[in-house]
Amino acid sequence: MTITRRHFLKAASAGGAAATVALATPAPAEARTNKLMPPKALGLLFDATLCIGCKACVAACKQANGMPQEVSTPERLWDTPLDISGKTLNVIKVYQHGTNAEKDRETNGFAFVKKSCLHCVDPSCVSACPVSAMTKDPETGIVSYDKDACIGCRYCVAACPFGVPRFQYDTATPQIQKCQLCKHRMPEGKFAACAEVCPTGATLYGPVEALKAEAKRRLAMKEGDEAVFARGDIRTPYAPHVRPAAKYLQRIYGETEIGGTQMLLLSGVAFAKLGYPDLPAQSYASRSETVQSTLYGGMVAPLVALGGLIWAVRRTTKNGEAGE
């Protein structure tokens, strides 16, 4: 027993476990911190208190992105996606409780919420993707997908904390599908279709900095006061929507969550109830990449380990019994 233990410990110290040692003692100096918001980051501000659930954005998104119909009802008359999917990039979901008496109230109320890509500042999907099919634009920060690079491993699907990238399971040539903020419409001078058609300004498009300032302005408003809400693109808005300010939770979702997102959300109902979990400020991408860089930074640890192993194997196989 003592012998075997000693043998094992020796084995461990002999270089084969150099990596093992490195695993247990991550070097803080190499820890990767959250990535920062690109300077010209574009995004969306979704204000659940303004959303009326008209689903104009769902329809417009389908049209703008050439996505097929998705039917969930027995009648098969309407495009009725239950969630975002390989056929749907954006849905409006409803939160309901009790009697549904009042909008944006948690008890006996209801609320609408948009589900689409949040365009994380430090996206898990980009960090997970092994073949650079998921990329984050250094300028606009739009997280986009390249089907020609993708191998279809679905690591992005599994990794995204919001469950955004979706895969097509019903075709021999599947792709990942996710909102790319209508970047294909930008050369035509158009912006995100969801914000373009939103009748109330619940989905507002623009530079993240401006949207954040707008979100803060809304949080500072007094409930019931007449308030003016921009519609469309915050830089060149359509005629504003005027209505009394709602009661907001004093929180901008996406401001800090896993390093921040480029889609920000405001709501009167707790975000966790709307399918937006409470998340820490440190991005998961940075955690994962810290572990990786600690172990494999510059391939130093593996090479040292390999050297040790070669020495050890050479020593034990000198008598020529290696192949047996």
């Binding site: 659930g53 009725t80 849905v91 919420v113």
Partner: peptide, 8 residues
């Protein structure tokens, strides 16, 4: 609406 909303 005629086609119900997806729930959260």
């Amino acid at each position: 609406p005629p086609a119900s909303y997806p729930r959260i």
